[in-house]
Design a protein around this nucleic acid. Structure first.
Lengths: 109, 109
DNA sequence: ACAGGGTATGTCATATCTGACATGATGTCA
DNA sequence: TGACATCATGTCAGATATGACATACCCTGT
């Protein structure tokens, strides 16, 4: 995992799973987080390719600008559900989602 | 869709996959539900191929038998997060998840 | 018929997520 | 410089998901 990402994760209360041990994630927890990061980044790419501001996208998915920002940053407080729903609302196909997810795994060892 | 209405219909016996056309689902909502359904079914397949009972899987993912049953039925009360994390815990690769998701889209008309 | 393993379904207290809001940071243009 | 747009981040009340539990419904074997 690269430094920027790690910094970002450390800064916030990553407390996925049982304990509050953010620096020693189990492989599954790590993969889950990487998945969210990949989807968040893809959401950002897709939004930009559509020339939408976070606020416009927020309106499109009945959310708020701040939550869109959190989605794109894969904030611990956002769910896969919200991420996936937003991507679908933005016009992503299942095939496209699949690609992003497969790539998230491929980037890992 | 109106969530209150959804709850009401669920109480009356609506089950995912059986009468989706009675609910005014937007295309995105429908695709989201199909996605959950596909993942739930895959979870069941994977669990069975491992010869695990719902109770054993529940222990494996720190959940309960009843919730595993709901996952496999794609109950509205289970999230994509839980589904995906359970699949990862069961040993599914990102590639495998991608395949399931892509198939969910392909099955859609 | 009974017992026991596996699964479905309803409920509930608590944990987590959500949209909304406030506020700050950054960039751009005049 | 100031006005404005865009994005980041913190907070919080209300909404939703969660594990646990009870219970009922299959099976299969005895």
């Amino acid at each position: 995992m690269d430094k920027t990402k790690r910094k970002r994760l450390e800064k916030k209360g990553w407390r996925i799973g049982s304990a509050a041990e953010f620096l020693d994630l189990t492989p599954e927890e790590n993969r889950y987080i990487e998945l969210k990061l990949a989807l968040g980044e893809h959401l950002k790419r897709r939004r930009r390719s559509r020339r939408l501001s976070q606020e416009m996208l927020a309106k499109l998915v009945s959310s708020s600008q701040s939550r869109v920002a959190k989605m794109e940053a894969a904030d611990p407080s956002v769910s896969l559900d919200l991420l996936v729903r937003s991507l679908l609302a933005l016009g992503s196909s299942e095939k496209e989602l699949a690609k992003v997810i497969a790539a998230a795994g491929g980037a890992r060892g």
